[in-house]
Write a protein that binds this DNA or RNA. Structure first.
Length: 479
RNA sequence: CCGGGUGUUGCGCAGUUGGUAGCGCGCUUGCUUUGGGAGCAAGAGGCCGAGCGUUCGAGUCGCUCCACUCGGACCA
């Protein structure tokens, strides 16, 4: 049709250039804009509304398990940051430093927090006295700065918004349980709020967080087959407690070091949603986090009664507790359809003169494009049903894709060959040696994503060195 | 940090052998329209990424930055 010519907001096809498709969605769905400092992003109202929904749902989950929110300072004195060697080595190269206050040079430079373990430890050193005060289950929502070399909206920006949970416990077992509990909290959140299946597991030593004793992760597969680390949970043992001299008086009246965890998830989750559900018409949002869950479009809205009919539908949907918008602007229908598809609104309700005659409306699904003619009396019921169906379909489709693009191998060459054909997840056994992990990167171009909790026995030996295998590892190309 | 690409109005682009900047969309106003990115008309909008150089003259040629972008390496 000749009408195609006006598609000024059309985006690059996913199949043509996945990275460009991703960037197009970020900009054209009005999620972000670039800031004037390289690598920093402006999260625009629509993007921020998605983040707010993520925050609200996740924060509610944290509170169910007794976590409380706090706010820590943004700046960390260099001497404080450097008390724990491994963390410094991990983060110092990517710290932004404040060297001046007003016109005066500071005695000691201050790091803009890249993560806040050190701040929490410093605080706990002051306030912790007795085992009776444990556990301390803290979380904060804030932004952090890491001076990344290559940046992309949501996936890798120099500043990003996140939550960081930090807890200390009386015993190692409690802290380990907390670490695992929070990882499952993330995994469930991804399923229930983002319709995104993940592989939960443990990071190898090579991939674990600087300073952690153990790092757990949830890994998701994007539509291009690449892996996105979507959240992590760390167990620190008492390493930081000792480095920062955090102590308490135990039940036996001795001075003890608490056991610590931290866990985080970031605005990267928005990138994950884009690359898990999006298509060539734009964003596709799972209903729980969609800023607009249903958009009402009055068709031929100048005709008598149409707008009122649309507003009536709007009110009924709102009364259901849904986030609804009625677009009564004078844009054409086609424009509106395309616009809300770009923005990933899960359901579109149309009502026009013909519908009014028949006592019906039209509901269109964003995920499948299917249209339903629905008697007005059944609006609430049908919308509820379809929102549920959209979420389930998004989750099942993503799960199917994850399963169909994960393969077991027992030879390194086969991993390489599969990756060259199409980026995917490769499962192999592994001996546990870092040398073989590095070899896998060199020979097949993949890094270890995790050792899944759900282990399978694919064989007896490591495909790299032929020594006895200890673990099954999922390998992939990481974002 | 290494390599490739791109910077001209809000967005997308054109701009010849160097001669003082144009198109489409969007925007504003009015009218007409409305079941998949509407039509007509009249408007507004530019230090051509920045700096230095070559030249009588630079959007155009040279050098140096900077930004964005893609791919590596590194990382949420």
């Amino acid at each position: 049709m000749a009408k195609q010519k006006k598609q000024v907001k059309a985006i690059t096809a996913m199949s043509e250039d996945f990275a460009q498709w991703y960037t197009d969605i970020c900009l054209k769905a009005e999620l972000v804009d670039y800031a004037s400092v390289k690598g920093f992003m402006i999260v625009r109202p629509y993007g921020y509304a998605i983040w707010e929904n993520i925050v609200n749902i996740m924060d509610g989950e944290f509170k169910k398990t007794g976590h409380v929110n706090v706010a820590m300072p943004m700046l960390i004195p260099e001497s404080l940051l450097k008390k724990e060697g491994e963390l410094v080595n991990g983060f110092a190269p990517e710290c932004a430093w404040v060297t001046h206050g007003g016109e005066g040079k500071l005695e000691e430079r201050l790091a803009v927090r890249p993560t806040s373990e050190t701040l929490f430890c410093d605080h706990w050193e002051h306030i912790l006295h007795s085992w009776r005060e444990l556990p301390m289950l803290y979380n904060q929502w804030c932004s952090v700065v890491r001076w990344e070399k290559t940046t992309r909206p949501f996936l890798r920006s120099r500043e990003f918004w996140w939550q960081e949970g930090h807890t200390i416990h009386e015993t190692a077992a409690e802290a380990e349980a907390e670490t695992e509990q929070q990882l499952w909290c993330y995994a469930n959140f991804c399923r229930d709020a983002l319709a995104m299946p993940v592989i939960p597991g443990r990071k190898t030593d090579k991939e674990k967080f600087a300073g952690a004793e153990a790092t757990y992760t949830i890994e998701a597969m994007m539509k291009d087959g690449k892996a996105l680390q979507s959240a992590t949970s760390h167990y620190f043992g008492d390493k930081f407690s000792r480095a920062y001299n955090v102590t308490f008086t135990g039940r036996d009246n001795t001075q003890q070091y608490p056991f610590q965890t931290s866990w985080g998830s970031t605005t990267r989750l928005i990138g994950a949603v884009i690359m898990t559900h999006g298509d060539d018409n734009g964003l596709v949002l799972p209903p729980p986090i969609a800023p607009i869950q249903v958009v009402v479009i009055p068709v031929a809205q100048h005709k008598p009664g149409v707008l009122d009919a649309a507003y009536a539908l709007n009110d009924r949907l709102k009364a259901m507790g849904l986030r609804v918008k009625t677009d009564d602007s004078d844009q054409s229908n086609g424009w509106k359809y395309a616009e809300y598809e770009m923005k990933g609104v899960p359901l579109r309700v149309e009502i026009g003169p013909k519908d009014m005659e028949k006592g019906q409306c039209v509901i269109a699904r964003r995920d499948t494009g299917e249209k339903y003619f629905v008697p007005l009396a059944e609006l609430e019921e049908k919308v509820q049903e379809l929102l549920k169906a959209v979420h389930e379909n998004l989750y099942e489709s993503a799960k199917k894709r994850l399963e169909e693009n994960t393969f077991a191998f027992d030879k390194v060459e086969d991993v390489k060959e599969a990756m060259e054909k199409h980026t995917c997840f490769a499962k192999t056994m592994w001996c546990g040696n870092e040398a073989c992990e590095i070899a896998m990167k060199e020979l097949a171009g993949v890094s270890s994503r995790c050792m899944p909790f759900e282990q399978e026995n694919l064989g007896e030996v490591c495909p790299v060195c032929g020594q006895p295998a200890k673990k099954m590892v999922v390998w992939g190309v990481a974002y």
